[in-house]
Design a protein around this nucleic acid. Structure first.
Length: 313
DNA sequence: AAGACGAAAGTGGTTGA
DNA sequence: TCAACAACTTTCGTCTT
């Protein structure tokens, strides 16, 4: 199948054929895909992936299930393909006859070809493990990984991979999902765990964001303090104090226009002093990827505005 | 000696003509 | 597309504990 044909099919599936809008919603219960903008029902009688029975408790749901592993976004064919074992043994462990061996060899061959038959699939076979790898490195949950995989699949379908490295797109998807969910991972953290440079990462990040029409609210310092505080080995009370400082700062409008990480770092620095668990500017700067200078500037502002005296032992 | 301070020059990103 | 601009960084000499 040529690239053009593939794209045509994709176009058909994701655009409203009436008004061309890409805002489509799926209603699994009714088995419909419809257009948000003009209301046209694009697909009907789709298969409802849910169970056909009703359950009244989670236990009951489990006991009635008759399916295998859940479909997952993290395997390129969503975990739905058949695996053919490489060992030339039958079900009872006996070696296969020569003729059968040849047959299985051919089956495996076609199996491999069928599984990675087109460019998208081939791309995903390298991209998805990479997503898992980086996400685990950054300590992100499986459900978030799934979300990353969805974003990546979408960008792949939009043809955003062409001329860009898979690694970069993967990293950008991860960073995007972090921001969408306010997970408080910095650009640097993602960049470091993915051998993709900052510049390339931001470039791809913007492209995906734009192409997929994802809007992201500006980060708030609050999103970062949890992570920073734990990296500094500070107790919960310091975290609470930090949050208080940010609340006050917000009321005094000291936050807008400043880098959220900088403000977060400064608030933590102050809180660490107020709760007698002092961390140096250097230490705070390291975990928050801002410089000491920025912390100084921010914390001066904050301390002045909030009338906080910093010099106590 | 380590940490904090602040001046000065440089960088990358946003805004508005 | 370009210049102006604010926020932030880098660097470095000085002060404080």
């Amino acid at each position: 199948m040529s690239i053009e044909e593939e794209e045509q099919i994709f176009e058909h599936n994701t655009k409203c054929r009436e008004c061309g809008s890409r805002n489509l919603v799926t209603d699994d219960g009714r088995g419909e895909v419809s257009c948000v903008d003009c209301g046209l029902v694009i697909e009907e009688n789709k298969i409802d992936p849910g169970a056909e029975w009703r359950v009244f408790s989670p236990e009951q749901g489990d006991s009635m299930a008759r399916t295998g592993a859940p479909s997952t976004q993290l395997i390129h064919d969503k975990g739905l393909s058949t695996e053919i074992d490489w060992q030339n043994r039958d079900y009872s462990g006996r070696a296969l006859s020569n003729q059968n061996r040849m047959q299985y060899h051919r089956m495996r061959k076609w199996q491999r070809r069928a599984r990675s038959s087109n460019t998208h699939e081939r791309n995903l076979t390298t991209a998805l493990p990479e997503i898992s790898r980086i996400c685990s490195k950054l300590g992100m949950s499986k459900s978030v990984q799934q979300e990353v995989a969805v974003v990546y699949r979408k960008s792949l379908e939009r043809g955003l991979t062409r001329g860009r490295s898979i690694d970069a797109l993967v990293a950008a998807s991860i960073y995007l999902v972090c921001n969408m969910n306010k997970l408080g991972r910095t650009l640097d953290e993602v960049s470091e765990s993915s051998r993709v440079g900052r510049k390339e990462l931001t470039r791809c990040y913007k492209i995906i964001k734009k192409e997929l029409g994802i809007r992201i609210k500006v980060n708030h310092p609050r999103d970062f303090i949890q992570g920073f505080v734990s990296k500094l080995g500070l107790p919960p009370e310091t975290l609470t104090k930090t949050a208080e400082i940010l609340d006050q700062a917000e009321r005094l409008e000291l936050i807008d226009g400043k880098s959220p990480t900088g403000v977060a770092a400064a608030a933590i620095y102050i809180a660490s002093h107020l709760t007698n668990r002092i961390r140096t500017q250097r230490e705070v700067a390291d975990v928050s990827s801002v410089t000491e200078v920025t912390i100084r500037n921010r914390y001066k502002e904050l301390a002045d505005a909030l009338n906080i005296e910093m010099h106590q032992k």
